[in-house]
Design a protein around this nucleic acid. Structure first.
Length: 287
DNA sequence: ACCCAGGATCTAC
DNA sequence: GTAGATCATGGG
């Protein structure tokens, strides 16, 4: 049970468990959060800028209030989900997974806005994380809305759809992906989606839906489905995950990984992926 | 100059 | 349906 107190320009939350800012923001799921200092992050989501400070037994959220916390951030940080149950379930499967769950104990899979995940992970293809963050930041500065201070929201599809692809490419340095971004924005205006759009659809059908957007292949599709909170069994398989699945389970290709994941992790695939991804990225796996 | 980065697309077979 | 080249950009 959470206990909330008002503080200067924000709120203080007691009673959070399975929650670590570093684990949440350094496991590669979101690109607009930056560490200011130890246990202190700042970022923008859902058109709002907040700062998060982690204390011993509390979390401060600056630039919000109780109502906004329950309306916005409770869902965004997936606070309704008991991650202890998930970790216990995964830890039963094998020792590798148990170790990964312990290492990334504070990971939570954020419920991000669908359009932001669509564009962000189109940019992520064949790119590295620092540069992905730069590209997304200039996308926001150029085409987002100023939301106070020096902060800019993620652009609306309607805004981005009007921009010439060359303008996007030159200003955001996104290279050949600028055409994909432009196309995706235009198609999203005609065929918008959010996580409710997938109700009643299998993940295969969901994947097919998002892969209509140019620049979205199988891996990016699973990132969109997972990080928008649409399918928690989605299992994005990039080079790092391929590496870890070979190392732990001897799986050499994406087809074998796909079959294995469906049976072994089942509905917990996305959670398993994040614990494993974070562990191997931080070089915390047996040999 | 070469290789890589949370891959996808296009082409040729 | 699938292996191989190609795709902008920046950092090492």
């Amino acid at each position: 049970m959470l206990e909330i107190r008002d503080i200067d320009k924000g709120i203080r939350i007691y009673g959070l468990k399975d929650f670590s800012l570093v684990h949440i923001f350094e496991c590669g799921q979101a690109f607009r959060w930056n560490q200011i200092k130890a246990n202190h992050y700042a970022g923008i989501a859902k058109g709002r800028y907040i700062e998060l400070k982690e204390g011993k037994d509390y979390l401060d959220i600056v630039n919000t209030n109780r109502d906004e916390f329950y309306d916005i951030w409770f869902d965004y940080f997936d606070l309704k989900t008991d991650y202890s149950v998930i970790k216990a379930e995964l830890s039963k499967k094998d020792e590798y997974l148990k170790g990964a769950c312990e290492f990334g104990y504070g990971i939570r899979i954020l419920k991000q806005e669908a359009f932001e995940t669509l564009i962000s992970f189109i940019i992520s293809a064949n790119n590295n994380i620092p540069r992905i963050k730069k590209c997304i930041e200039s996308l926001c500065i150029n085409y987002g809305e100023k939301i106070g201070g020096n902060q800019y929201s993620f652009p609306k599809a309607e805004s981005l759809a009007k921009i010439d692809p060359d303008d996007i490419r030159i200003k955001t340095r996104t290279g050949y992906r600028a055409d994909y971004i432009s196309h995706a924005a235009k198609l999203f205006v005609d065929r918008p989606f959010n996580r409710d759009s997938f109700d009643g659809l299998t993940i295969e059908e969901g994947r097919k839906l998002v892969m209509d957007f140019k620049g979205v292949g199988p891996k990016v599709a699973d990132c969109i489905l997972l990080f928008s909170g649409s399918y928690m069994e989605a299992f994005p398989t990039d080079v790092w995950v391929e590496r870890v699945m070979d190392k732990l389970y001897g799986l050499k290709n994406k087809k074998d990984i796909y079959t294995f994941v469906k049976n072994y992790f089942a509905s917990l695939g996305g959670f398993a992926q994040q614990y494993l991804f974070y562990a191997i990225r931080e070089n915390h796996l047996a040999n």
